[in-house]
Design a protein around this nucleic acid. Structure first.
Lengths: 94, 94
DNA sequence: TTAGTATTTAGATAATTATCTAAATATAGA
DNA sequence: TCTATATTTAGATAATTATCTAAATACTAA
């Protein structure tokens, strides 16, 4: 999970996640949303891949990236723990 | 919100958040949970403070740190958006 | 005022990270 | 095989980050 937190620390990568939330995309399509050279996008995608936040699949000349919602949900769960259990404590006290 | 994501990218800082979830603590109390020199803890606390994830209050010789759940919830909301709206789309299609 | 304790700040250092350029690799079609 | 396109890898570089040591600051009590 540390890798996920690290990957999400960068705004470019968060935007990539947001893009892939809506639909799967090729590396080139993703790159079009940024004013950045493609190797840099590759580097970011590699980071997200390493954290398993995205999955990649080659389709001929293209590589299609998709969001791995399972891992996003894991990180989500961490926040839930930080917020939710605190609410439960409050309830118990009342 | 970028500051929050950055702050949370470090495991030491995430552990601090987890500690403060349970109860407010002084810098010294927090430091006891880590095998690290106090200036380093200070550095981490400063990062969390800068991101507004924690709040500090001097009480005599001590500085007490508390979790700022509002900001934690903001970040939580980001994940909700990544997960939740995707679920809604699925529902609409069914 | 001095001494003790809590905590931070400053500075150094090594490691990590984000972007670029150049080159390499993978796929497809002629 | 050559050419074109998509994408990644490699290397350089500047910026950022995490830990340490030394020093400074803040508060308390004698």
């Amino acid at each position: 999970m540390n890798e996920s937190f690290k990957a999400l620390s960068d705004p470019t990568r968060r935007k990539i996640i947001r893009l892939l939330r809506d639909k799967n995309m090729t590396a080139g399509e993703i790159a079009e949303h940024f004013n950045m050279k493609k190797p840099s996008i590759s580097h970011h995608l590699n980071s997200l891949k390493h954290a398993k936040l995205v999955l990649d699949e080659r389709q001929g000349q293209h590589i299609v990236y998709s969001l791995n919602t399972t891992v996003v949900q894991e990180v989500f769960g961490w926040f839930l723990e930080m917020i939710d259990s605190k609410k439960e404590e409050d309830k118990d006290e009342k």
